[in-house]
Computed example of a mutant assay.
Amino acid sequence: MSAEALQWFKSTYSGDEGGQCVEVAASPRTIHIRDSKNPEPTLRVTPATWTAFTTTLK
């Protein structure tokens, strides 16, 4: 799936002033992660890896 076809989300903690934000998009087998100011390349991880990462942050 191309990055353009994904629905990207950014954190609710991100403001609208155009700062650097991390954006995330989910597809069935992959979680895509990118920098809003530099959208290419994207980092791709498995859903299990993403869950482990976000669980660790909590």
Rank of each mutant, 00 (worst) to 15 (best):
T49S: 15
K37D: 05
K37N: 06
V45C: 10
E40W: 11
P28H: 13
T54C: 09
Q7T: 07
V45Q: 07
P47R: 15
T12M: 05
M1L: 11
I33N: 08
L57D: 05
P41H: 14
T30G: 06
E40R: 12
A25Q: 04
I33P: 01
W50K: 09
F53Q: 02
P28F: 12
Y13L: 14
L43E: 06
S27V: 04
R44Y: 05
L43T: 09
V24H: 06
G15Q: 01
E4Y: 08
A26H: 02
A5E: 03
R34D: 04
Q20L: 05
A48D: 08
I31F: 11
D16C: 03
M1N: 05
W8E: 02
A48W: 07
A52E: 09
G18A: 08
D16M: 11
E40Q: 14
R34Y: 09
K10W: 11
L57E: 08
V45N: 05
P28W: 12
T49Q: 14
R34Q: 06
K10F: 10
T49I: 13
Q7S: 10
P47C: 15
S27F: 07
Y13W: 12
H32I: 00
S27Q: 12
E23S: 10
P39H: 11
L6F: 03
K10N: 08
D35A: 13
S14I: 07
T12A: 12
W50R: 06
K37T: 03
D16R: 06
E23T: 00
V22I: 13
A25D: 02
T55P: 01
G19Y: 06
F9D: 01
K37S: 01
T56S: 12
Y13T: 02
A3P: 00
P41A: 13
W8Y: 03
L6I: 01
R29L: 12
W8V: 08
P47G: 15
A26M: 02
